[in-house]
């Protein structure tokens, strides 16, 4: 079980308190109607699946309740860093 640093609580907490939220930094288009089908498909379905550094969302559901971002190595499972939602990609 991972130990995840919640950037809001500023504590390391057990993975069971968190829920995984998929790839990070995929903003919902401000005007979806302006997108063509290919662009919308890309937003809706296409995700990276890197070997190595992966930016992903987690939510401290059973804690402060906040979504935040993490950089996790998909090979070692080591979480390099976590940061608050809205902060720049690391």
């Amino acid at each position: 079980m991972l130990l995840i640093h919640c950037p809001y609580c500023d504590e390391d907490r057990a993975e069971v308190e968190f829920v995984y939220g998929g790839e990070a930094h995929i903003a919902r288009p401000l005007d979806p109607s302006a997108l063509d089908d290919t662009q919308w498909e890309s937003y809706l379905y296409l995700r990276r699946n890197p070997r190595g550094r992966h930016h992903e969302r987690w939510r401290h559901t059973y804690g402060c309740g906040r979504f935040f971002n993490a950089v996790r190595d998909t090979v070692s499972d080591v979480i390099e860093t976590t940061y608050k939602a809205g902060e720049a990609r690391r």
């Binding site: 829920v19 939220g21 919902r28 969302r57 939510r59 906040r66 979504f67 939602a85 809205g86």
Partner: peptide
């Protein structure tokens, strides 16, 4: 509730 929180916190904060 989780879906609403997701949109509220991450898209329409």
């Amino acid at each position: 509730l989780a879906m609403m929180e997701d949109y509220l916190q991450t898209e329409w904060s």
